[in-house]
Amino acid sequence: MKKTNFLWLAILFVAGCTKKIESANVPLASNNVPLSSILVDRNFNWSATKQFNISVTGLRTKNTIKGTFSVIDVKTGTTFYKGLHTMSDNLSLKLTIPTATDSLQIRFGSIQKNYSASGTSVQTNYLSTLSNK
């Protein structure tokens, strides 16, 4: 009898776990799933933004070239950063951007480069942006 009860408990436990795991796969446009019923990872921080690091290797230049370095959301045009920088200096930025941001554009004068924002960092430089003139 005790063994039977244990078996039932085990089945119920497994079934309960299965339901919880399945609840992570909430169907699209499911408007009757209360927040309290979903399984959320313990480390999830509920943030709709993320830290994004940009590091730029400076370019050795003959003269000191200073200008505005900016980082822009390609889709919305939102400027995440603007600052005065020397082209020969390395640059390291820690930005907070929406996780929904698809791509970023960095600008320094006429130099413009686009990058995917799906990760958390980009390493770049000022090279390969100029055609032979």
Partner: peptide, 29 residues
Amino acid sequence: NITSAYLLLTKWAASSGRVYTDWYLDIPG
């Protein structure tokens, strides 16, 4: 419940923010 208003919030949260990162935007559905 906010999940009744924002239909993809649960998917976003259940994926630890990996899918439907734009769940709060005014997009059909």
